[in-house]
Simulated scan of single mutants.
Amino acid sequence: MFHRARHARARRAFVRRQTRRARLRWVTVYLATDPRAFAEGYTPSTPIRRVYRFALDCSVREADFDVLQRIVDASFDHEVVLGRIFAALNDMPDHGDEPLTRRWYRARRRSLSVGDVVALGSSHYACGPVGWHPVPPPRPTTAPKVRILL
């Protein structure tokens, strides 16, 4: 009997770990380095650089219960998460996202704006003047290496 109970406990612990992992979503933030991107928006030729990567807990919160009525739309899940990220990186965090906002501004980064790209897993979205637009994966630009010839 002890053997079965031990396995049942182990199975429950495994399921808890798996569901907790399923709630975490990896987020990568790319900031545009060209000032024209603020007016024109993101294009594949816009120079950007990867500045931050973090895991965001996407578990259901009390504030999201009214949102759950529209969960039928598959793209809506990403819109909710992108809205949370935009609010947190513009110094308007939702309840529970305050540590993310503190870490972002403590590193002296600017606010998320038009022309910037956010990756949720393998999906990439550009911040537009109104809303988010899916884009192909960006290629971050690196500063050219400078050689000093003597």
Rank of each mutant, 00 (worst) to 15 (best):
M1Y: 11
A5L: 15
A8I: 09
R9T: 09
A10I: 05
A10L: 15
R11N: 05
R11T: 05
R12Y: 01
F14D: 12
V15I: 12
R16L: 09
R17L: 12
Q18C: 14
Q18R: 15
R20H: 15
R20P: 02
W26H: 12
V27Y: 02
V29T: 06
Y30T: 06
L31P: 00
D34N: 12
R36L: 15
A37Q: 05
A37G: 05
A39E: 13
E40T: 14
Y42S: 00
Y42A: 01
T43P: 00
T43L: 10
S45R: 14
S45D: 13
P47I: 04
I48W: 06
R49I: 10
R50M: 06
V51D: 04
Y52V: 03
A55C: 07
L56R: 14
V60D: 09
E62H: 09
A63S: 14
D64K: 03
D66Y: 12
D66T: 10
Q69W: 06
Q69V: 07
R70W: 15
R70H: 15
V72A: 13
F76S: 03
H78Y: 08
H78C: 08
V81S: 04
L82Q: 01
A87M: 10
A88Q: 01
N90A: 05
D91C: 05
D94A: 10
D94R: 10
G96D: 06
G96N: 08
D97L: 13
A107T: 01
L112M: 06
L112G: 00
D116A: 09
L120I: 14
G121T: 13
S123F: 11
H124P: 05
H124L: 05
A126P: 03
G128N: 13
V135L: 04
P136V: 07
P138S: 03
P138E: 02
T142P: 00
V146M: 05
V146D: 05
V146W: 03
L149S: 07
